[in-house]
């Protein structure tokens, strides 16, 4: 009954059928199975329950399970489609699909918007943008005066907030991101093209034979 032991020794939940996930995403069945090898590695790194907890996600990203990072938190929350505090295998595959090189740019733009819309209001507000700029400065140990930060935020709003209402809505974001594709570089993971090469041991798990 104890929380700690049930978290440590719970049986792995049966993961979703690879063929269903392959139909819904850019990945083939083999690639989904290869992703399971990666998922399993991450999801058993601390809690051994076949679910990715935030600490395990941070450990995989930063080699440190306690490292707090606003943007890693946002990614985790968006991957956690059911919003139950853990990432299941289906959520992992459906979310990584966005980062596949072959996924349409519109999907990446939409995902990035949700990342940056910190409070989920349907637009990126000035305060949110400033909060994110302060977070990246803090993360990078960069020191900038408040005036300089305000200037960066102002200038970005001048470029992106086309109707000047003090918020960047989804259409303004689409226009801005389309004009500045370098902003979306972090939305594409070349690794996903070669996932079966990176994790070839999937054949031991798969038996799917395709």
């Amino acid at each position: 009954m104890g929380c700690a032991s049930s978290k440590q020794f719970k049986r792995a939940p049966h993961h979703e059928d690879a063929s269903i996930l392959a139909k819904e995403t850019t990945f083939s069945v083999n690639e989904v199975e290869a992703l399971y090898v990666l998922f399993e590695k991450i999801s058993y790194s601390i809690f051994k329950d076949g679910l990715i907890h935030k600490e395990e996600f941070q450990l995989a990203l930063f080699k440190n399970s306690n490292r707090k990072n606003l943007f890693a938190d946002r990614i985790f929350d968006l991957f956690d489609l059911k919003r139950n505090g853990v990432i299941e295998f289906g959520e992992f595959v459906r979310s990584l699909h966005i980062f596949h090189p072959d996924t349409p740019m519109e999907d990446k733009i939409a995902f990035a918007f949700r990342l940056y819309d910190l409070r989920g209001t349907g637009s990126i507000e000035r305060e949110e943008l400033k909060e994110m700029v302060l977070a990246i400065l803090n993360e990078s140990d960069l020191l900038l005066s408040d005036d300089a930060v305000e200037q960066i935020v102002d200038q970005t709003f001048q470029q992106a907030d086309l109707n000047g209402d003090g918020r960047i809505d989804v259409d303004e974001w689409k226009a801005f991101a389309s004009k500045n594709p370098a902003l979306l570089k972090n939305m594409t993971l070349p690794y996903l093209k070669d996932i079966t090469m990176a994790f070839p041991s999937f054949v031991l798990y798969s038996g799917s034979g395709d």
């Binding site: 990072n69 606003l70 990584l96 994110m132 990246i136 200037q151 960066i152 970005t156 972090n186 993971l189």
Partner: peptide, 25 residues
Amino acid sequence: KPESMNAFALISRSQGFNLGNLFEK
């Protein structure tokens, strides 16, 4: 120079977005 910076370009460099690290063995 801060005046030539785009906030989103700055933010997109966060290590938190570096999902490539998930694939490191």
